[in-house]
């Protein structure tokens, strides 16, 4: 049911996006999107690496989902795990019956930031302090490209608001880490290797 809706949404977004693309080409002839290419190539600005990141430890996680609750409570004003930016629940079923090694999903603040590069509106920006990639809600126009671009499905797209949300490290003091009772979530120095971790 949900997946069908999403597919429809994708089709709609794709159409809309191509319309914008055609429009832009028609008006300006050739327009260069600033982040539309590999970093540094063709003079596109490189994205500075994040300094910190939230990491999840499967062995310590107790599956209480306080991180999801804290994230949605503090950032959305009401408890709603489906609107969190950290996910334990998404892969809860696959481990609870077998080994209990919960796969918690957190944003890796990727070096290449596919979400950021996918946004034609440049709504995804780099935080000055933590260098976290965050969504500027004033700019976000709800295309949802970032959600589709993220290889880890860590962008939470709110269909009713038509806006995307992603982990912005709460400006340097992540609420999920503060509420974790098992030190399963840690706020640690960013390292390019985290990109490759499963």
């Amino acid at each position: 049911m949900e997946s069908r809706e999403r597919k429809e949404m994708n089709r709609r977004c794709f159409l809309r996006q191509s319309m914008i693309g055609i429009g832009v080409v028609a008006v300006g002839g050739s327009v260069v999107f600033p982040y539309n290419g590999p970093s540094g190539a063709f003079g596109y600005p490189a994205i500075p690496n994040a300094t910190m990141v939230v990491m999840h430890n499967s062995a310590l996680c107790i599956g209480c989902r306080r991180c999801e609750v804290a994230c949605s409570t503090m950032r959305e004003g009401a408890s709603q795990p489906s609107r969190a930016r950290v996910f334990i629940d998404r892969r809860y079923q696959e481990s609870i019956w077998t080994d209990g090694q919960f796969t918690g999903e957190t944003c890796r603040q990727c070096e290449e930031a596919p979400c950021l590069r996918a946004c034609p509106a440049e709504a995804i920006k780099v935080d000055e302090k933590t260098k976290a990639r965050y969504v500027d809600l004033k700019v976000c126009n709800g295309l949802g490209n970032c959600q589709r671009a993220c290889p880890f499905n860590m962008v939470n797209y709110f269909e009713d608001e038509r806006k995307a949300r992603k982990c912005d490290l709460c400006g340097g003091a992540p609420e999920c880490v503060k509420q974790c009772p098992a030190t399963a979530l840690r706020y640690v120095k960013w390292d390019p290797r985290y990109d490759d971790l499963d």
Binding site: I62, R66, G100, A182
Partner: peptide, 13 residues
């Protein structure tokens, strides 16, 4: 014993 498990929103586990 593999680990402690908590119910929803429980820090006591």
């Amino acid at each position: 014993h593999v680990k402690n498990i908590g119910c929803f929103s429980c820090p006591v586990a």
